[in-house]
Design a protein around this nucleic acid. Structure first.
Lengths: 222, 222
DNA sequence: ATTAAATAGTGAACAGTGTTTACCTGTCAA
DNA sequence: TTGACAGGTAAACACTGTTCACTATTTAAT
């Protein structure tokens, strides 16, 4: 019940933290390669030369460990997302870059991304009031902020609701990621026969992302 | 190696098919309620008063059983999707209704929907040439067809690529479904504090869907 | 009608899984 | 030096999907 008085860590704590970090990094490597099903406590224990039970001295459960891996991913995402220059900003270009970064990182770590949105576990109150939010939530608020400013400054349609627009853009990006994870080459899937339009977007893996963002910005209406 | 000569089924075949169907319906009920993790072969066996091994006389694996449940879901979806009247058609209205139906059914059976898109299993060739496609693929081609006709008839922007546009709309719808599954009330999530805009979309669960479709059609550009 | 073969069903076993528990050992502070 | 505590282990618990030998029943052919 003592408050965390910011005292310097004892050697024991330092050791504990070190091993904990080592477990996390090995787990991250295996998880990146083999996904959630491929990361078993026993296999992980063998890989770090410990017994399975030892892991539970550092993590409450496998789920808790996975949660940390996912959080690490979204912190990495938050770092790589571009920051917006409010003055000289091209809003559509910034939106494009943000969404492309989001999609690229997600596809770099598909297992992290997928399990982060699996199941309807998030029953906890997500109405966040302060800045004590997860990296996932902070990333969303960056998008929301940009949309809001873009509407204010006339870069986007003035009658848009910023929050709902941000949600829609997030949903659209999320959906593209999930489909690209599910269909390993979503770009060329459903192409008719081998004789048509095969050279249209050849080579460019980002073509479909650009198209997607363009559609969001332009709409499909006449 | 004998061709299926369309002979009438023997009593044994009829019995087999009957029990198989019974297993499927019980499994579907449990799966709808408890999801993939909650549907175990042993629990299912107990529920149908058989031994666990018996199920393997009717299905190769649990995965094969789940695949049939998922296919059943997409066939149900295909039945409930609206059919387009080529002549008198309002394209945007039809798109709206299609997407709303898609989302509503998906949210009615979130476990079916979610596991149907889980993992990057789909390594098989998805470039389909003929009509021997799954219900999921046939549903997509309905959307694709509508988009193509809409472009031809001037309802949508003429420089759009029908296939990629269909993919984008699918991705956007898919993403909204997945986020709504993950955040049980995605509509009101991220709302700031209890004092603002609480009565804006009260009661209407389809408000966010309408907004989403509107955004796809109008775009956000100026 | 009798025999042979295919099918239906069982219960135990195999190889895994996450997790808990009793127990031992080494570190560290009083 | 003693006592508390954290680190680590092996074994067990309660599961999982799946397979296998075995029996009983039903079907088909002689």
């Amino acid at each position: 019940m003592s408050l965390p008085t910011e005292t310097e860590p004892t050697p024991a704590q330092r050791r504990h933290s070190k091993i904990r970090q080592m477990i996390l990094s090995v787990a991250d490597r295996v998880f990146t390669r083999d996904g959630e099903a491929g990361l078993s406590i026993r296999k992980l224990a063998e890989e770090i030369d410990y017994s399975p039970g030892a892991i539970y001295k550092y993590f409450d459960s496998k789920q808790a460990l996975l949660d940390e891996l996912k959080e690490m991913f979204f912190e990495r995402l938050l770092e790589e997302l571009p920051v917006f220059d409010e003055n000289s900003g091209d809003y559509t270009e910034f939106a494009k870059q943000s969404i492309e970064t989001y999609i690229r990182l997600a596809l770099d770590a598909p297992h992290h991304y997928e399990t982060a949105f699996a199941g309807s576990a998030e029953a906890k109150s997500v109405t966040l009031d302060i800045a004590a939010a997860s990296a996932k939530e902070r990333a969303f608020f960056g998008l929301y902020d940009m949309i809001q400013k873009g509407i204010e400054r006339g870069a986007f349609q003035s009658d848009l609701d910023a929050l709902h627009t941000a949600k829609s853009i997030w949903a659209a990006s999320h959906g593209l990621v999930m489909l690209m994870i599910h269909f390993p080459n979503f770009e060329n899937v459903f192409e008719m026969g081998p004789g048509r339009s095969q050279a249209a977007d050849m080579g460019m893996p980002n073509a479909i992302i650009s198209r997607h963002v363009d559609l969001l910005i332009r709409g499909i209406g006449p």
